[in-house]
Write a protein that binds this DNA or RNA. Structure first.
Lengths: 218, 218
DNA sequence: AAGCACCATGTAACATGTCAGTTTGAGCCG
DNA sequence: CGGCTCAAACTGACATGTTACATGGTGCTT
């Protein structure tokens, strides 16, 4: 018999829903949230909503302004580049560790993710491409087998995922280039060239910051 | 005129108190906490206590077990080495950025911190040494001017600070070596040798993991 | 004496009430 | 018409009540 898994607490469930709503753009950047209204919408009391918002605040997805309201985060160039820099650091470090500790498993995971992306590309399915992309990068981070890295990564990419959605038109143009970069990166990993792989990965990640700069200028 | 700073919310105040209590060892590792009892002790209601515990959980200082209780974290070798690895990564990366962006200011900050430590050492004041040490490392992280780094660092070192307290007897023996390492590191920074400085810093941080291993073996 | 069901107690999760600070806009005055 | 005042509505912070679950002990059964 399987042990009965604890059903998610309402708080977690609420946090998940909100996170998804923000990342998918269902809630606009900078939108004003009200604990009361969210509670009504989700049919729960204010307590789990409040707890969930506290979590999201610690993830940087919302900012709480005391007695004024809670708002979806609004990125600026500085924050975005800081986040990208941080993400690049985490991923390149994880990649080096992964190449040492788990090269074979890492390559398998990357392969699977690239497959997903390739199929999504052929099917003209942008959401699928995004899912594959996230899996690709997640496999890098997880290959480090350092849970502190992984946790920190989760916290860092939340806002970046949301940004990606909002930069969709710009990002969509570059899926071809993105695909090529993923493959080059994987090739470098296969040849066990951590220095080249890290450089490729760094540049790849920094494209998001560049896309944001373009958007901001417009 | 200075803007009037918002007085801390009860939740923040509570979180700070608990954080200090854990880091100083006033609350033992693994100790069971009860929202109700904490609320009574701190003379606040359960709400801010609950919120504060949620924060501390996201910092890894406590673990909440649904319907059972909240407990101060208990480290194991794996977690400690993961945290140290993560901390080393953040600090070395920050150091490289700091040397690029802020070498002069960084050296000033380091100097001040080393002064503190030196004075504490002469006065045989271990708490003062610890304060100086934290200031030294904080100045490195802050020199990166990347707030995402800084935030991540704060989250990572909480448990390590608590550990340091509990490894006090072991760590106290090595303050001399620690002092020497700080000075060597600073010298490497002054000569603008990021590679050497990073290596020194990495090894320096990893001493904590080694101390924990010794303690665990005992 | 050992195994068992049962119950008292403690816990966090969740619901709801109250309060003080903030925002907003309707209405008044210049 | 424009600026001002002020009260009402809204908001999150905090307090407290209620519920479901986990646990440890007690006494019955065998």
């Amino acid at each position: 018999m399987q042990p009965i898994s604890q059903p998610k607490s309402l708080m977690e469930e609420t946090a998940d829903r909100l996170r998804i709503a923000i990342v998918t753009g269902e809630l606009a950047l900078g939108a004003k949230l009200s604990e009361q209204r969210l509670a009504n919408t989700l049919q729960v009391s204010r307590s789990p909503v409040r707890d969930a918002l506290a979590i999201l605040q610690s993830e940087g997805l919302v900012t709480v302004s005391p007695k004024r309201g809670t708002f979806v985060f609004t990125p600026d160039m500085r924050v975005v580049s800081e986040l990208c820099e941080h993400r690049s650091l985490l991923e390149t470090a994880a990649l080096r560790l992964g190449l040492e500790r788990n090269q074979a498993a890492l390559l398998d995971q990357m392969d699977a993710a690239i497959d997903l992306m390739q199929k999504a590309l052929e099917a003209n399915n942008p959401a699928g491409y995004t899912a594959g992309d996230q899996r690709f990068h997640r496999s890098i981070v997880e290959s480090s087998e350092n849970r502190s890295f992984i946790r920190s990564y989760e916290l860092t990419i939340g806002p970046l995922k949301a940004l990606r959605t909002h930069l969709f038109t710009i990002m969509a143009e570059s899926t071809d280039r993105s695909m090529v970069e993923h493959k080059k990166l994987m090739a470098a990993c296969r040849r066990h060239d951590p220095d080249l792989a890290s450089k490729l990965l760094w540049d790849h990640i920094m494209h998001l910051a560049e896309a944001f700069k373009i958007k901001e200028a417009a």
